[in-house]
Design a protein around this nucleic acid. Structure first.
Length: 571
RNA sequence: CGGGGCGUAGCGCAGCCUGGUAGCGCACCACAAUGGGGUUGUGGGGGUCGGAGGUUCGAAUCCUCUCGCCCCGACCA
């Protein structure tokens, strides 16, 4: 491709509304343009990258034997009503009406459609297992789209669905898909981790997320320093210490603590180490439980894991925090003065709390705290559960190593769905026993457009993008210096460019009449992995300048063998 | 959904408080010089100031409504 024939539109200025680096660079490169909130046009430059990612995904899916297809983006409401997701999916579901007033959705995912296909087409276990996939535009009406294509409303997704006669077959495909996903992200040149995850609104049992590691990631992931334990923050657990093991060291003491309303106050004014404090969170009880409210106890420096807390039998799901008025009503003290001693409502302690001794907490009376509290001696040890978020350095739950926290961008998610959709849509096949069996299903997603942004987050410097070669829009930039003034430069550049193109290399010849600095800056900004500079200077001595986008210095390449040398470097 | 902010040329912004017929930088077009890290000069094109209504002799500016966009929050003992 010649730059003069390509719509290359770069800009020096960073748009005001782009917060993260990938969004800024994509705008500055001219890869994307916003049409409206969360909805983007992919320009020719951006589209080349998107297509590269798409093709890697497609090739790996194909070689695993999965079948590509294309399902409708617009789907009848009836199908979503059958599975209950017309109501359950929530505000992210974009609902539409046609001229006759019939309701439709713009597909945010395709379990309904693919299961409808399966119930009509699949008859026998002999047709199984089978995996269908598509690469297609999805729409999810995000509450708050942001970060460009990272969290867009309209986005490109690869979604795959597998069908099985039994759980064992599902698991085989699930773990095969795990490997396929790992190959895809590895091939795209990304540093990533797979972590255990919750299956959330999609439903089902087992699930893993694939995260590209990046500081700007919206998700927290957790992994062990020694073992292969890895989970997202919702699910991550630390090895629990033994409850009640610590022996009392000091006496219980009730002390006046005026104007002490927070853990921070307690630590500052009374010189209590934060690890010797506990905080009480009052939440609504489950409607079937005997208590209106339940107190949750976590160590002062720990935070409540709302996902875990909401799973507790005694606790309302979704989690609902008591307001100040309710806390006063049922406990008789404000939120800053709560503690386990003489607490009038049931409580559940985090495992860490159950192992504490000589700790401080509120006295359930204004302006008073207890110090030196010990379980058993001063108050009965409450029931325990894992209700906190793990922190950096916690022991890994398998006993091997400590936990590290990192930020990640979720680019893939695989689920074992089981029969959730096949049962609600009555998708069954005959087994070898001659009886009907609901299909076991798996579903597997990759955020194709999100990968583009994630790759930039992971691969950039102060000059711009540094594409991993497999997803770069062009492989090499051929930059003639002052071609207008030099037919030698012009001819040499054209010749090399032609040879590269003939060799199948995606070369990008900058034949614009612009100064060298403009070329260098543009090519570095858009992240072309290799570049060759052709000038009078080099031609005089028979050597040309080559530079890798990630290298700090030029290399000299002899003119006579330049194309072979480049081909070797390009792999 | 709650809170805050912003809508003036393709992009980044000034002008608004104190009303008087719209400006700067980048980008774009033309010409010239320059020619190895976003070069320089001269000349030029482009805006119903988000939209509607109101106040006024006169509105980008004041008032009302409306639409759009962005940020923060949905953890608190």
């Amino acid at each position: 491709m010649r730059v003069s024939q390509f719509h290359l539109f770069t800009t020096r200025e960073t748009p005001a509304d782009a917060e993260i680096i990938s969004h800024q660079l994509m705008i500055r490169c001219g890869m994307i343009r916003k049409l409206t909130a969360g909805i983007y046009t992919w320009t020719p430059l951006g589209w080349r990258v998107l297509r590269k990612v798409e093709n890697i995904v497609r090739e790996e899916m194909e070689s695993a034997g999965y079948l590509e297809m294309l399902m409708p983006a617009v789907q009848p409401a009836e199908l979503w009503q059958e599975t209950g997701r017309w109501d359950d999916f929530g505000g992210q579901l974009l609902k539409l009406k046609d001229r006759a007033g019939r309701s439709f959705v713009f597909g945010p995912t395709h379990e309904e459609v693919v299961t409808d296909l399966a119930r009509n087409e699949l008859r026998s276990y002999k047709q199984l297992p089978v995996t269908f996939y598509q690469i297609q535009t999805k729409f999810r009406d995000e509450i708050r789209p942001r970060f460009g294509v990272m969290r867009a409303r309209e986005f490109l997704m690869k979604d795959a669905y597998s069908f099985h006669i039994n759980q064992q077959s599902l698991e085989e495909t699930y773990w095969q898909m795990y490997e396929v996903y790992s190959r895809i992200f590895t091939r795209a040149g990304l540093e990533f981790r797979a972590v255990k995850a919750d299956s959330g609104a999609i439903g089902g049992s087992a699930s893993h997320e694939f995260h590209v590691l990046a500081e700007s990631g919206e998700d927290q992931i957790v992994f062990s320093s020694e073992s292969d334990y890895a989970a997202n923050i919702d699910l991550a657990v630390a090895l629990a210490p033994a409850a009640g093991a610590a022996k009392p060291g000091v006496d219980l003491r009730l002390q006046d603590t005026p104007n002490t309303h927070s853990i921070a106050d307690l630590v500052d004014r009374f010189e209590v180490p934060i690890e010797k404090t506990i905080k009480i969170l009052v939440v609504a009880g489950d409607e079937n439980s005997e208590s209106e409210f339940v107190a949750l106890l976590v160590r002062g420096d720990h935070s409540l894991n709302e996902f875990k807390a909401a799973q507790l039998e005694a606790v309302a799901n979704p989690l609902q925090f008591a307001d100040e008025k309710d806390i006063h009503r049922v406990i008789g003290a404000g939120p800053g003065s709560l503690g386990p001693v003489d607490l009038p409502i049931p409580c559940i302690a985090d495992h860490t709390v159950a192992a504490m001794s000589d700790f401080a907490a509120g006295a359930n009376a204004e302006n008073k705290h207890y110090f030196g509290i010990n379980w058993g001696r001063d108050v009965a040890l409450p029931p325990q559960a894992d209700i906190r978020n793990v922190i950096e350095g916690d022991p890994s739950p398998d006993g091997q190593g400590v936990l590290h926290l990192a930020r990640g961008i979720e680019v893939g998610h695989i689920f074992q769905l089981g029969t959730k959709y096949s049962e609600s849509l009555n998708a069954v096949v005959l087994g070898d026993d001659g009886k009907s069996h609901p299909l076991e299903m798996g579903c597997y997603g990759i955020g194709v457009s999100r990968i583009v942004a994630a790759a930039i987050e992971q691969n950039h410097d102060d000059k711009g993008i540094m594409w991993p070669e497999p997803i770069a829009p062009f492989a090499i930039a051929v930059l003639p210096m002052n071609a207008k003034k030099s037919h030698r430069v012009r001819e040499a550049s054209e010749a090399i460019y032609r040879q590269l193109i003939e060799a199948g290399v995606e070369a990008f010849l900058d034949d614009r009449n612009v100064r060298p600095g403009v070329m260098f800056n543009d090519m570095e900004l858009i992240g072309i992995p290799h570049r060759l500079v052709i000038g009078e200077r080099g031609l005089d001595i028979g050597m040309l300048e080559y530079r890798n986008r990630r290298a700090a210095e030029n290399e000299e390449i002899p003119l006579d063998t330049v194309v072979q040398e480049l081909l070797a470097r390009l792999g």
